[in-house]
Amino acid sequence: MATRSVTSRPSVGRILAWAYLAVIILVTLFPFYWILRTALSNNYALHTNPSSLLPVDFTWGAFKRALGLATVAEAQAEGGSGASVNTALYLRNSIVYAGVQTALVVFCSATAAYAFSRLRWRGRELVFSILLCALMVPAIFTLIPNFVTVKNLGLTNSFAGMILPGAFFSAFNIFFLRQFMLGLSSEVEEAATIDGAGPLRVFFRIVLPMCSAPIATLCLLTFINTWNDYFWPLMVTSDDSVRPLTLALAVFKQSSPNTAVDWAGLMAATLIAAAPMLLLFVVFGKRIVNSIGFTGIK
């Protein structure tokens, strides 16, 4: 009885702590709710009731505008500009940019990590530590020269130009995977070697499958980072045909007139831009949370 009251008594401190946590979660989540609430509102009606917690004059119109499905008359009736926003195209561009970049850089990092962990060769540690130096260089420093390189190659406004600089090398990815591969038991590998499998076969048939969990994590993190990337696409693209959604969103905001911003349409587009990340989060949330903890301890 006595011990039970000690463990389950809701002390003042515990109540305050839960209250703090509740406030933090509320502040964290409220903006997401507010995006949804605004996106489902009629943009004209927003003026009449700016602090309503529910959508004002509920309508799907903002999503239709953001996806380019509304006619000009429909859009203007609900406070949209009527200008066409090709969200579907930007969405495709984002998927190509983030998808191809992720696939390439994770694969190249995996092969390099294998060479730096399971293969034995002279100079291995030296080359590895030189590559790690890249962690020290801030992105801004290499971005301007990289822009000049991409421009000289004639690749501005192309997927190749956007993807190339980050497609082959990521110091963090190599470090992360090497760390994991170093910890693999060598027994299975040796058994396969004795059975006559070459190291390349060992890599594809044994090491890659054994690393599927960290590889999946890296794919997630890289995809999220690339999807959210802003500065680099802003530098190398000026054409709608390759612009990713994140960038288009910012341009859309800057080009809309300050007097009558279509906030409902903007928030709908924002939600569409964030949706893939939120979806990944729902499916892989636990893995993302745990892998971030893991990168911290290493």
């Binding site: 903006p31 507010w34 995006i35 959210n228 969103l249 903007l266 924002t270 831009a273 990340m277 990944l280």
Partner: peptide, 10 residues
């Protein structure tokens, strides 16, 4: 998980 652009916009 969301981009800085989305956060700033919101």
């Amino acid at each position: 998980l969301i981009s800085g652009v989305v956060a700033a916009m919101t």
